[in-house]
Design a protein around this nucleic acid. Structure first.
Lengths: 157, 157
DNA sequence: ATCCATGCAAAGCGTTTGCACGATC
DNA sequence: GATCGTGCAAACGCTTTGCATGGAT
């Protein structure tokens, strides 16, 4: 599906969620979703605040925090703690498989990965202790081998 | 080595660190380390504050936060983010191998694990992207299969 | 008309910092 | 006696909340 279709699908998902929960379909909620669709990637709440406020002035940050939580509940966004203690958000695309993150602390790149072996070992470990796996947090922290020559340097995302 | 020897070794490690860094050997720093030796486990800064203040009244929480950081630098403690955004500390025993954590959200248990396959895959993933592994955050979140009958219920650590 | 959502500002939480006093080297 | 550490309280960064107004159903 192309970008326009995907955007429409996400808006439909939002509308459905609002309808089934008996919540209101407000412009702010749609604008915040649009900002995500336009920018993609892994954004902190703070970054969303400034992006949204650039594009649609007058939206309070409380609304943004409340909406981010709502979009996560609606399974439109996923939240991760890529660096200690700061939440990052990204679009959750229904077709996509779950993935984890590799963060480069030199150049700021965020790389998504999915490793079936690791996934399987996690299941096994939970089972081994008589527990049911409900989720995991897995971030691999790295540095560039040659910071001077990294083409992604200084990127902040 | 028995508990007393181990405690002595940790104090020696602290003294050495302070000496080589030209820092002072204060009673507070020793008392905070003693609290860790006595209680072990995975403690949040908040828990350390209340444990230390119970045992040795009059220590300010700023001192505790500063000392926790110092003990991590001295490689006497390790810090982890077991739940989003709250730091937990535990004794780093030199002989021990690195480990990750499995947290049960029903009963509060924290189980340490080390999985060579996962470790190897992480190395491979970093290498695959031309990056150097510097660390990782890996927490497996679980629930008890049968919460009613879990012998560890309600434990908060 | 009802009730939810918004914007603002204030409060919250865990953590850090500025400062004068006190301790260690 | 110089310098570093401490305790206190105030500031911090990120996030949440109380409240009166505005908007969606």
């Amino acid at each position: 599906m192309d970008a326009a279709e995907e955007a429409a699908a996400l808006h439909r998902q939002l509308d459905d969620y609002l309808a089934t929960e008996g919540l209101r379909r407000t412009t702010q909620r749609q604008q915040i979703l649009d900002t995500f669709i336009a920018h993609g990637g892994h954004l902190t709440a703070e970054q969303v605040v400034s992006l949204v406020q650039d594009e649609y002035a007058g939206i309070g940050q409380a609304t943004i925090y409340r909406t981010l939580k709502l979009l996560v509940d609606a399974e439109i966004l996923d939240s991760h703690f890529l660096t200690d203690s700061v939440a990052h958000y990204e679009l959750h695309r229904p077709g996509d498989r779950h993935h984890d993150h590799l963060v480069c602390h030199t150049c700021g790149r965020v790389i998504e990965f999915y490793d079936p072996d690791i996934e399987a070992r996690q299941e096994a470990l939970a089972r081994l202790h008589g527990l049911r796996l409900v989720g995991h947090t897995h971030v691999i922290h790295t540095e560039c081998l040659d910071p001077e020559r990294c083409p992604h340097r200084q990127g902040e995302r």
